[in-house]
Simulated assay, not measured.
Amino acid sequence: MTDLLYTEEEEALRAAVRDLLGDHSDAAGVITRTESDAPHDLRLWKALTDKMGLAGLLVPEELGGQGATHREAAVVLEELGRAVAPVPYLTSAVVATEALLAFPHSRLRSSGGTPIADDLLGGLSEGTTVAALAVGLHTAPGAAFPAVRLENGALHGELTGVADAAFADLLLVPADDGGLYAVDAAAATVTPQVSLDLTRPLATVALAAAPGRRLGDAAPAVRRALRAGAGLLASEQLGVAEWALTETVGYLKERKQFNRPVGGFQALKHRLAQLWLEVVNLRAAARGAADALTTGEDVDVAVAVAQAYAASVAVHAAEEAVQLHGGLGMTWEHPAHLYLKRAKADSIAYGTAGAHRDALAELVDLRAP
């Protein structure tokens, strides 16, 4: 039977990431960044990639990565979610990396004799290159996705809702010939879109006769990438929910009314107990998805289960944090709004809970009458 408990190595990784985030990513700094034109934290990204090599966790060692599993990546995402860290870890180190890993590493050779995907993975694993899959953040695994036009060997068209595209050096773009193309971000026009979650900005990517290198078939690569993104997104949502629960419990222990701690009131105890149960269940679902991605067993079912449940818990936890912090929770200076926005945005990322429930019903043959 699969053991979903955290290993000693995973707990050590968590402690290291949490310490690093404590030194480099405080709530006030994140809030300040969301009010600027550059929400991404380059200093934090450099610390995550240079000091710890976290960008290459999913990249095999022979390609310059860490050769770790999705379980370790999930632990990192829990901590990044807990800090609402404005870095492109999910989009680059997970989604784009998984898309590149879908291609064989013995064909498609570049002029230097190295497989093209291998060249790109080397930059991603070192963190010197940030990549974005040019598919709308709302797209669920297995769903249809728009493609640009391939004409005379160049790419033409526009793709919307691409997460972290403004921060990317490399775009992985699906084309109407069925291929996935590697495009230098400098060859595209990237226009920011209004996004609820300012720590993970969206953008429109426009291509006008942009050159690209064909990597292989887009459909299986995009599906693999989005499935990994959806599965590990649950770990980020777990981090958001755990922060909201922990901070709310701590605040209610200190806040007093009628000379008593507010947390002692029975009605609030019941709300927090219910939220705790939801977070515990979310942890099990998120760990199940990460483990399935690692072992390759029942991956589609585990990912669908996690995402069918995760969104409502993360949103509920963030809403309770805002409400139970009272007037303080409604202020722009308090970080609770960052978590609510991240939870709301995540609830439609890589497919809504409803889309995943529909997918799960098909997978287990329990369709609605």
Rank of each mutant, 00 (worst) to 15 (best):
residue 236 E to D: 02
residue 167 F to N: 15
residue 188 A to P: 02
residue 163 A to N: 08
residue 163 A to M: 11
residue 149 R to S: 14
residue 260 R to N: 09
residue 112 G to L: 09
residue 37 D to G: 15
residue 32 T to P: 00
residue 332 W to P: 05
residue 251 Y to C: 00
residue 284 A to K: 10
residue 102 A to T: 07
residue 234 A to W: 01
residue 202 L to W: 01
residue 126 E to P: 00
residue 71 R to Y: 01
residue 55 A to R: 02
residue 159 L to E: 03
residue 294 T to A: 11
residue 106 S to A: 13
residue 286 A to T: 03
residue 368 A to F: 09
residue 331 T to L: 14
residue 313 V to N: 06
residue 66 Q to H: 06
residue 217 D to M: 11
residue 84 V to N: 10
residue 136 G to Y: 02
residue 171 L to F: 09
residue 57 L to T: 04
residue 13 L to N: 04
residue 337 H to F: 12
residue 337 H to R: 15
residue 207 L to Q: 03
residue 346 D to H: 15
residue 253 K to Y: 05
residue 130 V to R: 10
residue 325 H to W: 15
residue 90 L to K: 04
residue 222 V to G: 07
residue 15 A to G: 05
residue 90 L to N: 03
residue 76 V to T: 02
residue 108 L to H: 12
residue 109 R to I: 06
residue 154 A to F: 09
residue 135 V to K: 06
residue 270 H to Y: 10
residue 222 V to F: 10
residue 165 A to P: 04
residue 245 L to Y: 14
residue 92 S to A: 08
residue 285 A to H: 10
residue 7 T to C: 09
residue 65 G to P: 00
residue 260 R to F: 13
residue 293 L to V: 04
residue 218 A to V: 07
residue 86 P to K: 11
residue 50 D to N: 10
residue 316 H to E: 14
residue 20 L to T: 07
residue 234 A to S: 15
residue 369 P to V: 15
residue 225 A to L: 05
residue 193 Q to L: 15
residue 314 A to S: 14
residue 107 R to L: 12
residue 230 A to C: 07
residue 115 P to N: 09
